[in-house]
């Protein structure tokens, strides 16, 4: 029972970790990423199609990451190049993904609901799980010990200082946005070709926003963010397990209260009731290069 719960916690946390780390690069560089949800959805779709075509989950996840990057490129074009409001553009990108996935699915497979299912031999068994934790370590080391990691932080905290040091702020932000698209796409891929057997419509079901919540709960730092993903994943695993279980009499347990917990703690943390979480200083402000 316990071992099973641990295993399912680790599994359902995987997409969250990828997406939250993607969100971290983007937001630490000063670009808000409300569009994680849409990038995950595109990634999930791209990965399912890629796997169905290539019969390899590895090539499939590359396709998923590519789909995430493509959407991130549109996002970057609007928020960095055209200085669109990052929240408005982010919501629009989510809408675009919600519209494009069934649209393309219909063209490719003549159904809007979901892609054909992927045989179990062609799906991931556990690779994304290990990959995600490897990535946590890499991100931690990268952000802390490399010059490029420092650039990302400066682009989000003091873009003027970075520009004064001769680094192109918007170039750093472009890379960060594209990396976030790739990672969110991988998060989506781990939904469609690792946790389930096909892409289905709107299958991310708010996980992009939950990843965003984990990022805030984790104070925009790799290790705490990953732990927050684990905590939210645990809540999810418990909730799945308790669904339909009777508590007393024949009353089923209202799992809704477990479902809302991640969102509730995020509000409390952000408000400083439980610890304190501070956003990068220049988060959400466009940088105009002189």
């Amino acid at each position: 029972m316990t071992a099973q719960l641990v295993a399912s916690t680790l599994r359902v946390s995987t997409p969250l970790i990828f997406a939250a780390l993607g969100g971290m690069f983007c937001e630490r560089s000063g670009v808000i990423n409300i569009a994680l949800e849409g990038m995950m959805l595109m990634g999930a779709f791209g990965a399912a199609v890629g796997t169905l075509v290539s019969h390899s989950p590895w090539l499939g996840s590359v396709c998923g990451m590519g789909a995430g990057v493509a959407l991130a490129a549109i996002y970057g074009l609007f928020v960095i190049r055209l200085r669109a409001n990052q929240i408005v553009a982010g919501m629009a990108i989510n809408m675009l993904a919600m519209g494009l996935t069934p649209f393309i699915c219909k063209i490719l497979y003549d159904v809007t609901g979901s892609t054909p299912s992927i045989p179990i031999a062609e799906r991931f068994q556990s690779a994304p799980l290990y990959l995600s934790w490897g990535l946590v370590v890499i991100c931690f080391l990268w952000m802390r010990y490399t010059p490029t990691g420092l650039w990302v932080s400066f682009a989000g905290e003091h873009p003027e200082a970075l520009a004064a040091a001769g680094i192109r702020v918007n170039r750093v932000r472009w890379v960060a946005v594209l990396v976030s698209g790739a990672l969110a796409g991988m998060g989506g891929a781990s939904l469609s070709i690792f946790l389930s057997s096909s892409f289905s419509r709107d299958m991310t079901a708010g996980r992009g926003f939950m990843a965003l919540a984990a990022l805030i709960f984790g104070k925009w730092k790799p290790l705490p963010t990953a732990l927050a993903c684990l905590l939210f994943g645990f809540a999810d695993a418990v909730q799945i397990r308790l669904q339909g279980v009777a508590l007393w009499g024949d009353q089923p347990i209202p799992v809704q209260f477990i479902q809302i917990l991640p969102y509730l703690v995020t509000i409390l943390v952000l408000a400083g009731f439980v610890g304190r979480s501070r956003a990068p200083k220049a988060l959400g402000t466009a940088f105009q290069e002189g």
Binding site: I74, F78, R81, L82, R83, A84, N85, V88, A89, M91, A92, I93, M95, L96, M98, G99, L100, P102, F103, K106, I107, D110, T112, A286
Partner: peptide
């Protein structure tokens, strides 16, 4: 034959993006 009702989401998203593009 192939166009689905989700086109409205795509249209809405593209309209929002165009109106929000300050730089444009």
């Amino acid at each position: 034959e192939h166009v689905t009702r989700e086109l409205s989401l795509i249209l809405q998203a593209l309209i929002i993006l165009s109106v929000s593009a300050e730089g444009l």
